[in-house]
Amino acid sequence: MADAELAVGRRVGVRHRAFTRERLVFGYSLLVPAILYMALLVGVPFFFSLYLALSDASVGNQVAQYVGLRNFIAIFQDSTVRLALRNTIVFTVIAGIFKIVLGTLMAFLLVQEIPGKKFIRSLVVLPWTLPVAISALAWKWMFDPQFSAINYVATRLHLIHGWPNWLGEPGLAPAAVIAVNVWRGFPFAAIVLMAGMSAVPPELLDAAKVDGATFFLRYQHIVIPLIAPILFVGLLFDTVFTLSDISIVYLLTMGGPENFTEILPTRAFEIGIQAGALGRGAAIALVLFPILVPVVYFLLRNLRRREAL
C-alpha cells in the first residue's frame, strides 16, 4: 500500500519535473527573438560605440586604429563641445523646473470635476502627442524673423518692444529652445501627476477633512507624499527624453547663433555624421552616458520595486 503510494508519488514527481522542464524550454525559446534582436541592435551597437570612441574610425576609413583616449582629450579641448555639455545640462535643468511647475499647476486644475474635462484634457496634451519634428517646425514659423506670430501678439499687448529675432540672437535663442522644450513636455508632467493623484484613495482625504485638516494640510501630508514618487519617475523619464532630444535644436537653430544653442546631440551629429568622424562623434555622444547612468539606475530601481509589489 505504502509502496504503491510512493511509486505514484515518484511518478508524479518525475512527470512534474518533465513538465517544468518543458515549460522552461518553451518560455526561454519564446524570449529568444526579443532578446536576440535587442542584443544585436542595442547591446552590440552600444559596445561598438565604446570601441569607436577609442578609435580614429571615420566614414572613409575602413581600418580604424586604436587611439586610446585621444578622442576624449580632443573633445574636451574643443570649446564648442564644452559649451554643448554646459548647454545640455542647463537646458535640461531649467526646462525641467518649468515643466514641473506648469505641469503641477495644470494637473491640479485638470483633476477637478468640471463639465467638458475630457475634451479640455485632449486639447492640452496636444504638445506632447504631436510628432516632435512637426511641432518644432510650427515653432520655427512662430519665431520667424519677419512674420513671427509671437512678436505680433506680444508687441500688440505691449509685452515686448521692437521685433526680436528669437532664433537669431545669442541671448534669445537659448530661451526659445528651452521654451519649446517646456511647451512639449509640460503636458507629460501633468498627465503623470494626474495618474499619481488618482491613486490617492479619496477615503483618506475625506477622513482628513472630517478631522478638520485644511486644504493645504491635506496636500502636505497626504497627497504630496503619495504622488512624490510618481512625479520623480516622470521627471527621470523626461530627463532621459530631454537630454537626448536632437530634433528641437536641430530644426530651430542648428546649434546657432554662434553655437549658443549647441547641445551634445547636435554636436555629435555634426562631427560624427556630417563631418564623418565616427570615432569623435561617438565619443561626444558618450559624454551623455555618465549623466544618464544615475537617471536610468533610479528608473530601473523603481520598476523593480513596483514589480515586486
Binding site: L243, A268, L288, L292
Partner: peptide
C-alpha cells in the same frame, strides 16, 4: 524584463553612430 526595458532607456543619440555601421 528589466534588461529588455533598459533598451528603451538607451536613447537613440547613443546608438545612431554605431547603428549607422549596422
Amino acid at each position: 524584463g528589466i534588461a529588455i526595458f533598459l533598451g528603451y532607456l538607451i536613447p537613440p543619440i547613443l546608438l545612431f553612430i554605431p547603428l549607422s555601421r549596422v
